[in-house]
Amino acid sequence: MPYREKLSWLTLISLLIAATAYFGIFGPAVEFGKTRLLDIVWSYGPVAAVHGLVVLAGYAALALTPSGEPTAPADERDRAIERRSTSAAYFVLLIGMLLVGMVMPFTEPPYKIINTALFVIVLAEVARDTVMLFGYRRGLNGQAA
């Protein structure tokens, strides 16, 4: 499995676990900041910090593997897959932010807007990692797409 594909699996799985922890456990516990907006910071902050540390630890572990792959620079296929996945994530983020920034302020309270924005960011990252994994696994950017 290519080094960059491993990184995508790492970021995707850790992000899904972190998002599940916030949207499934810590968010509901404080009603997603419905009564106090700062509750969002105290519940999402630690989840995001732990997620960041897990990803950093995973990067370090992969970099220390004896295969030597991490030192290989990204080649044209890596860059093509990166472009494709970033475009997909941008599209998701654009649509989500239009909803959050231009529709929800007229209909929803602040805590819902903040949580929806967080959810859209998670969705965009999931889209990026998923398209990247498809790119490596199925050849999205080639003849077999």
């Binding site: 080649d75 044209e76 003849q143 077999a144």
Partner: peptide, 22 residues
């Protein structure tokens, strides 16, 4: 030619069309 082994494998399998230069 300056690409990874995985990229050569992907080209051979028709999963990736290389650039003209490659």
């Amino acid at each position: 030619i300056g690409v990874t082994r995985q990229t050569i494998a992907a080209i051979e399998q028709g999963k990736y069309s290389p650039s003209l230069e490659t």
